[in-house]
């Protein structure tokens, strides 16, 4: 995984609430055996019309969205299916942080494991971001802050371990494997065996 200290970008705003992972990547794109190239499947049924042509007024298709790597989304983003294809598709498309008032559990965990930063902010900040698409913000992983153009810095929750992994590009499997002895002890000493 790549190291991430801070991401500075203009925002692209997708106000829909309860956006589920079936919208982020529809199931028919899941018959893949690799994580690569899923950007084309991102929001496929919202981004493209029946003929496969881009829907001009879909936020991610607007020219102003070009190069934006911070997505501001309506509340409860990423609910539904546990498919990790959702953060894979967002990353492949170029999104590196998602800002909302609420981000669904499994999606949030999947995102952190792939270097997509979930940023949970208060309602007022969120409301302002929804109303002002395209502003330049900085997601500062190191300081756990979202910095707004007026100089305000809004704290967001990020546990120390996830922060450490993002800052150092550490993947969690290495950490787990380093605990092999403790795992073997647990297996030997537990009161019952599954």
């Amino acid at each position: 995984m790549e190291k991430i200290t801070a991401i500075t970008s203009r925002t692209v705003v997708l106000p829909s609430t309860d956006t589920d992972t079936d919208q982020i990547v529809p199931a028919r794109f899941l018959t893949t055996t690799t994580r690569k190239g899923l950007g084309k499947a991102l929001f496929a049924d919202w981004r493209f019309d029946r003929s496969g042509a881009p829907v001009a007024d879909f936020p991610l298709n607007r020219p102003s969205a070009q190069g934006c790597s911070v997505l501001v989304a309506g509340s409860n983003f990423g609910c539904g299916s546990s498919r990790e294809h959702a953060p894979w598709a967002l990353l492949d498309f170029g999104i590196r942080a998602v800002v909302s008032t609420e981000i669904a559990d499994i999606f949030r965990g999947n995102s952190l494991k792939n270097g997509l930063v979930p940023v949970i902010v208060d309602k007022a900040t969120h409301g302002w971001l929804l109303e002002n698409p395209g502003v330049e913000v900085t997601v500062d992983v190191s300081a756990r802050q979202l910095r707004l153009p007026d100089g305000r810095a809004v704290e967001f929750p990020l546990d120390s371990f996830s922060r450490y992994c993002l800052l150092n590009g550490v993947d969690q499997l290495g950490y787990l494997l380093s605990r092999s002895d403790a795992i073997a002890d647990f297996e030997r000493n537990r009161a019952w065996q599954p």
Partner: peptide, 19 residues
């Protein structure tokens, strides 16, 4: 439910990192 990265974690270590 877990994501695919965690599927790999469990396959390799039979454990998960959880809060």
């Amino acid at each position: 439910g877990i994501g695919t990265t965690e599927v790999a974690h469990v396959l390799a270590s039979q454990c998960l990192l959880q809060r």
